[in-house]
Measured scan of single mutants.
Amino acid sequence: TTFEIRVGDLRITLHNADEEEIRWAEEALRRGIHADEILRTLEERRR
């Protein structure tokens, strides 16, 4: 599944994310964390 998060002009697309990952990514985007860093962190958490 694919889920797109939008916060203002910012956007990130997550693939195969669970609800916790989606909530975490949305909050991180709101705090101004760059999408590349969010994706990198999620990848590390999945390992």
Rank of each mutant, 00 (worst) to 15 (best):
A35W: 03
R30E: 04
L14C: 04
E21G: 06
E37M: 13
I12N: 01
T1K: 13
E20V: 11
V7Y: 12
A28L: 08
H15T: 12
T1C: 15
E27I: 09
T41I: 09
T1P: 13
D18I: 12
I12T: 01
I33Q: 06
R45K: 07
R40Y: 09
R45T: 06
L10C: 05
R30N: 05
R23S: 08
N16A: 05
I38R: 00
L29K: 00
E26I: 15
D36K: 07
E27W: 15
D36A: 08
N16E: 05
L10Q: 14
G32Q: 03
E27P: 00
I22P: 00
H34F: 11
I22L: 06
A25W: 04
E26Q: 12
E4I: 06
R45G: 06
W24A: 02
H15E: 07
L42D: 00
I33P: 00
F3P: 07
A25L: 07
L42N: 00
E20I: 08
E4R: 00
W24K: 01
E37D: 10
A25P: 00
R30A: 06
D36S: 10
R46L: 04
R46E: 02
E21N: 02
T13M: 05
H34K: 09
H15L: 05
G32R: 03
T13C: 05
D36R: 07
N16V: 06
E21D: 09
E20F: 10
E19M: 11
R45H: 06
E44F: 14
A25G: 02
E19I: 11
R11M: 14
R31E: 06
R40T: 09
G8Q: 02
D18V: 11
N16R: 05
D9P: 07
G32Y: 04
R45Y: 10
R30W: 12
N16T: 03
A35G: 09
A17V: 14
H34C: 09
E20C: 11
I12R: 01
R40P: 02
V7R: 01
I33R: 09
A25T: 07
A35F: 05
R6T: 14
D18A: 08
E19K: 10
L10N: 07
H34E: 12
R6C: 12
T2P: 09
R6G: 05
I12W: 06
H15C: 05
L42R: 01
R31L: 09
W24R: 01
W24F: 12
A17K: 02
R46Y: 05
A35Y: 06
R23M: 10
R6V: 15
R45P: 01
R6E: 14
L14E: 00
H15A: 05
A17R: 03
T41R: 13
L29F: 05
I5F: 02
D18H: 09
A17I: 05
R47I: 13
A25K: 00
L29P: 00
L14T: 01
R31Y: 12
R40N: 09
G8A: 03
I12M: 09
E37Y: 13
T1R: 12
W24T: 02
R11G: 07
R40F: 11
T2M: 13
G32H: 05
I12P: 00
R46Q: 04
R47S: 11
E19T: 08
I5C: 14
T2R: 09
E27H: 13
R47K: 14
F3S: 15
I22G: 03
E20T: 10
E44W: 13
A17H: 02
L42V: 09
D18Q: 08
T2V: 12
R11N: 07
I12G: 00
L14M: 04
A28P: 00
E44I: 14
E37R: 07
N16D: 08
R45C: 05
I5L: 05
E4G: 00
E19W: 12
E20R: 08
A28C: 08
I33H: 06
L29M: 10
E19P: 09
E20W: 13
R31P: 00
E4F: 04
H34G: 13
E43Q: 11
A17S: 04
I33S: 06
E19N: 10
T1M: 11
L10H: 11
F3H: 15
L10M: 13
E21R: 01
D18R: 11
D9V: 07
H34M: 12
T41Y: 12
R31V: 06
I38N: 00
I33A: 06
W24E: 02
I22A: 14
T1E: 15
L29R: 01
R6N: 13
E21H: 03
L14D: 00
D18L: 09
T2Y: 15
R46D: 03
L39M: 09
H34V: 10
R40Q: 09
L39D: 02
E27S: 14
E37P: 01
A35N: 12
G8S: 02
I33G: 05
I22E: 02
L14Y: 02
R45Q: 07
R30Y: 13
D18W: 06
D18E: 06
L14A: 00
L10T: 11
I38D: 00
W24M: 06
I33F: 12
T2C: 15
